[in-house]
Computed example of a mutant assay.
Amino acid sequence: MIDFSEFILRVLFAGGGGLVVGLDREIKGKPLGAGTYVLVSIASAALMVVTLNFALSGVSEHGAMTVDPTRLIQGIVGGIGFLGAGAIMSPGDNGRLKGIRSGAAIWAVGSIGIACGLGYLKEAAFISVLVFVVLNIFDWLHIRGQE
């Protein structure tokens, strides 16, 4: 079982990873605000920890889990897709869709939360930094292409 102090650590760490990505998007005036990224990351981590605890509480006498926690990952990924679709709703003035990177970023933030919920904090930190770098490289390239 994952104790409450570990739960708090994982959820707060997930919120920090979501904040790294969310502030970048917020500062640049992108479709989804920083709060959305933080909430998705926190919720993904919290759901993952609660599900792990639930699954671990149902371990049979032979040591096998009676609940499959990986099914939650599938649900989180699918659910976040709806948020991403909301960021991509309308085409831009040039006929291209807007908000694609924000939609992908919200999905990536879900992976940060899932990693934190599973206890992979170093991996979550790496994902956070990598998403931040990728978003900034492509935003920089986009700006350069307009000059």
Rank of each mutant, 00 (worst) to 15 (best):
L72R: 03
G58N: 12
A14Q: 04
G113V: 04
G95S: 11
G33F: 09
G58I: 02
G33E: 12
I27R: 15
L83N: 05
A14E: 07
G15R: 01
T51R: 01
A125C: 06
G15E: 05
Y120M: 10
F54V: 14
A125Q: 02
L39K: 04
D68C: 07
D93L: 11
G99R: 12
A125R: 00
G63N: 08
G29L: 10
G119W: 10
S111Q: 02
A64Y: 13
L97N: 11
F13T: 15
V134L: 15
G35V: 00
I27S: 08
K30L: 08
G110C: 02
G75W: 12
I42A: 01
A105L: 07
S44G: 06
A64K: 06
I100V: 13
G81R: 13
V133C: 14
G110F: 03
V38C: 07
I100K: 08
G103S: 07
T36H: 09
A85K: 10
V38L: 14
K98T: 13
A125K: 00
A85Q: 05
Q74E: 13
P69V: 05
L121D: 05
G15F: 00
S90E: 12
G15N: 04
G58H: 13
A85V: 09
T70I: 13
I100E: 03
A46F: 11
G18A: 07
L47I: 12
K28D: 04
T70L: 14
A43Y: 08
I114D: 01
A55M: 08
L118I: 03
K122W: 12
A108Y: 07
I88H: 05
G110D: 04
V131D: 03
I88M: 15
P69T: 05
R101K: 08
D24C: 06
G84D: 02
A46Y: 11
G113H: 03
L19F: 15
L52Y: 08
W107I: 00
F54P: 00
R71H: 09
R25W: 05
F132T: 08
S44V: 04
L39M: 14
L97C: 02
G15A: 07
S57E: 12
F54T: 12
L97I: 13
I42K: 03
A87W: 09
G18D: 09
S60F: 10
A125E: 07
V109K: 05
P69Y: 10
L97S: 12
I112V: 14
T66A: 15
P31D: 11
V50C: 07
Y120Q: 09
I76H: 06
I80K: 11
G119C: 06
L19I: 07
G92N: 14
P69E: 08
G22W: 02
G103I: 02
T51E: 09
